[in-house]
Every structure is written in C-alpha cells, then in structure tokens.
C-alpha cells in the first residue's frame, strides 16, 4: 500500500536499529519524552570539537520514533557540528521518506529534538526546529 507509513526502510530501522546504545563518557547526552505516545529517546554524542565522531541512541517507543532516531544517527555521524545544527524538520521528513500525519509528527521529530537540545546545550529544541 503506497500511502503506508510502515514501509521497508522504517521497518528495517525499527527492527534493526543503528547505533543503538550509550556512550560513557560522552561529550553531551540529552533525553526527552513525547508525552503523547510515551516515546523516550536518549542520545549520547562524542565530538572532536568540530565533528560528530560517535553517536548512540537509546529509548523505547513506537516504530516511527525509534526508526527516526536510528536514521538520524546515520545522518549525522562524521558530519560537522554546524551542519548538524542546520538539520531541519524537512530534512528529517525527507530522510524518513514516508507521509507523517500530524498525529505522528512528534514521534518522528523526537530524536532530532533531543539531538538539537543536546548540541545547543539548551532545552528550547522546539524553537530550534
């Protein structure tokens, strides 16, 4: 079914999450929840001061939130911090490649919200998006 959100890429990342785990020590760690679904995401990042050298995510929740976080770790690993800061909501949606309904947008964006909050070292990640 062409309009399904549950296409192979999402299911693959959901079943076989990339970069799942934690980093201790890390250069920054941040976590947050999506109160609507109860999704939880934590992201740990190591940097060399300019680039993301290692990234791990952990948490639990719906397939969309977990797959999106998994995809996000692949998007940012090795990339300059400035580029990571510039990742937009639309970039994330493009990477997901499936239609995200308004009801599931918070699931899809939770990983990016957590990463941005961590990278800026602040909480107003919604504004950063």
């Amino acid at each position: 079914m062409s309009d399904s959100v549950y296409r192979e890429a999402i299911l693959d990342h959901s079943r076989n999450p990339r970069n799942k785990g934690t980093l201790e020590p890390s250069d920054f760690t941040y976590e947050d929840v999506n109160p609507l679904c109860g999704d939880e995401i934590r992201i740990d990042v190591r940097t060399d001061g300019e680039r993301v050298t290692e990234i791990r995510f952990s948490g639990r929740g719906c397939a969309i939130s977990q797959a999106a976080a998994s995809m996000l770790t692949e998007m940012v690993e090795g990339r300059p911090l400035d580029e990571v800061k510039a990742i937009s909501r639309d970039d994330m949606l493009e990477e997901l490649g499936v239609p995200i309904s308004p009801a599931r947008m918070k699931c899809a964006m939770l990983g990016l919200k957590v990463l941005k909050a961590g990278i800026y070292g602040v909480s107003p990640a919604d504004e950063a998006l």
Binding site: M1, D3, S4, V5, Y6, C37, G61, C62, A63, I64, R104, C107
Partner: peptide, 13 residues
C-alpha cells in the same frame, strides 16, 4: 511488542 500507536496507525490504514 508492537507499540499500541503503531497498531492503531496500521488499523487506521
């Protein structure tokens, strides 16, 4: 282990 929101989303489809 399917999250209830994923179940509901597939039912919605």
């Amino acid at each position: 282990d399917i999250h209830p929101h994923d179940v509901a989303a597939i039912l919605n489809e």
